[in-house]
């Protein structure tokens, strides 16, 4: 992100006066999108919010206009560009990414990789002056060569898996956005790489994994994990929409914990598997669509993939309010509540 980094030195005040800003959000029905719309609805600086998704967000909207858009359809970029021009959108927040692994890999590719292409085309054709992209720490990949804390400049390696395009699509989206930033030095491009979100309501691969009574772990391996509370995720997103901060930023809660300590704190039973067996079993189960997590994910149970958040602290002045212990305690509370209900 060299070009984007160069621009990050510049001003960090909102580009326009109060009550003039219009924000468009793709993937508006998702958890991050809904939270952002709620926050923008209450903020007087924003006159209008344009929400793109397949379904309308399930709460009352006042200044939000909903447009039904399917990012996988050809020609959707022109349609979006028309809306962006008509509504005079100045900021596009691209959140239309899956937070769960899926077996529908070709559809996921169309949505994430091609969807980003459509979004960027629409932004090019309109007068959008800021683009915000949601990305995940998974993109760095869990590799034996990773430093204990990955900085933003580290290469995005992802996971090596033949049928697993979940992460490579996200990396491709980031690559496109980087290219967009280089081609359009006049536009602010922000990428937020977030740690896995975990809290009371989160629904993604990590919260699903930890919701199981037994959690598979790799025998003899115990990686350090990092999370993010959705309150902090929402706050970070709102922050980069409000202010101009070009560049890539790692967003994560403070602190790390080993996986086995987390299973202990949550009262879950770890199921230690030898690596060779786990890989084979996971391969078969993934092929048979019994499990929803591909075998390449096993690397994340083996090697560290933890981000350094110094840049966000220094440049965004963003400090996560919930640390990992509060997040795990909240998850423990959620499990306890589920147990009581059962």
């Amino acid at each position: 992100m060299t070009t984007a980094d160069r621009h990050s030195e510049s001003d960090s005040r909102p580009g326009q006066g109060d009550g003039e800003r219009v924000v468009a959000i793709s993937g508006a029905r998702g958890m991050l999108g809904s939270a952002l719309i709620r926050a923008l609805e209450e903020d007087r600086r924003y006159t209008k919010v344009v929400a793109f998704d397949l379904q309308k967000p399930d709460f009352a909207l006042q200044k939000t206009v909903f447009h039904k858009i399917d990012l996988t359809l050809p020609g959707v970029d022109a349609e979006m560009a028309r809306v962006l021009r008509a509504e005079q959108v100045d900021t596009f927040v691209h959140l239309a990414f899956l937070s769960n692994f899926t077996h529908r890999t070709s559809w996921a590719h169309e949505l994430e990789s091609i969807g980003t292409l459509h979004v960027l085309n629409a932004c090019t054709e309109s007068r959008t002056r800021k683009v915000v992209l949601w990305s995940q720490s998974l993109c760095y990949g869990a590799n034996p060569g990773n430093p204990a804390y990955l900085r933003e400049g580290h290469e995005l390696v992802g996971a090596a898996g033949p049928n697993d395009t979940y992460i490579s699509d996200k990396i491709d989206a980031e690559r496109q956005v980087r290219q967009f930033a280089e081609e359009h030095p006049d536009r602010r491009v922000t990428v937020l790489r977030m740690a896995p979100i975990l809290d009371r309501d989160a629904s993604n691969f990590i919260s699903n994994m930890l919701s199981n009574r037994t959690i598979p772990v790799l025998l003899g391996h115990d990686p350090l994990l990092q999370f993010l509370h959705s309150d902090d995720a929402d706050r970070a997103l709102k922050m980069v929409v409000d202010e101009d901060h070009a560049g890539v930023f790692n967003i994560a809660a403070d602190g790390v914990l080993p996986l086995r300590t987390i299973t202990g704190l949550l009262g879950r039973v770890p199921l230690p598997l030898p690596l060779a067996l786990a890989r084979r079993v996971a391969g078969v189960l993934w092929m048979g669509q019994v499990i929803d997590v591909p075998p390449s994910f096993l690397d994340y149970l083996r090697y560290p993939c933890v981000m350094d958040t110094q840049k966000a602290q220094q440049k965004l002045r963003f400090f996560a309010e919930r640390d990992i212990h509060e997040i795990v305690a909240e998850m423990a509370g959620r499990i306890e509540a589920d147990r009581r209900v059962a």
Binding site: G255, V256, L257, P258, R260, T261, T263, L265, P270
Partner: peptide
Amino acid sequence: QLRHRSEVVDE
């Protein structure tokens, strides 16, 4: 599980 582990580790 937490018999041999502390609930806080350093960075």
